[in-house]
Amino acid sequence: MRKLLQYLLEQGVATQKSICPPLDDDAQGLPTLTASACSGSSCSACQEACPTEAISVAGSESNEARVSLDLGCCIGCGLCIETCPTGTIAENRSTQTAASRREDLVLTNETTELTARSIEERPTIFANSLHARVVSTGCSSCDLEIGAAFNPIFDMERFGVHVVASPRYADALMVTGPVGRGMQEALKRCYEAMAQPRLVMAVGTCAISGGVHKGGYAEANGADSILPVNVYVPGCPPHPWSIIHGVLVAQGKSTVGPAVLRTK
């Protein structure tokens, strides 16, 4: 025990000071759209490359070409960024990617300046204390990243967030995974057992839209097909900082941040 204490003292504080900083240089970020003109359906390289049908390209003339990119379906594989010849799709290194409305995750190259995303920050009663019940319905990497968000490096507890073992004590329900038929009943019951006011956070692309699983016989199409969702955290899995950002959005202390483009 003495050795452990000595070791812990020697290690000092591991916690990162800056909150939700951009991703490290070596990390792959989510895609975003820029003002560079897209050459339209004569190209469509991104749409063909995307494994989750997150992108659609319409219009053929350069000036009419419209791309729409649904971050709620995106698993962040980076293929669209690699294939885009016009620089319309670029990599966003921001970790402030959580949004409180599903529409805000759908980007189009007509509204790249995030015009849609102008919800005001409004501290909620959960601003200083938010107890969360985590219900996993998926493949565990989102759960691991939620776990990591509580480690000494990210230390989500400093924002007043605690994981609780019963919905009775919970303010927020954090859902991970695509919510297939096997979990729908349990998830609903968990939600119903929570006292009001209560929030639902969909953490990860699966929880938002079903991700790679959507549209199958298991009806794994995301949390908002059965519950009202208040906060969406895209990513497959989202970075721990993005999960923390989701919590800050839930607490009314933040909104989706501007893109931080990778400079080549």
Partner: peptide, 19 residues
Amino acid sequence: LGYVHRGVEKRLTEIPWTK
């Protein structure tokens, strides 16, 4: 078990192998 059944094996037969 079975609560997280998502139909993965079926999905793998529905999409192009490249994806």
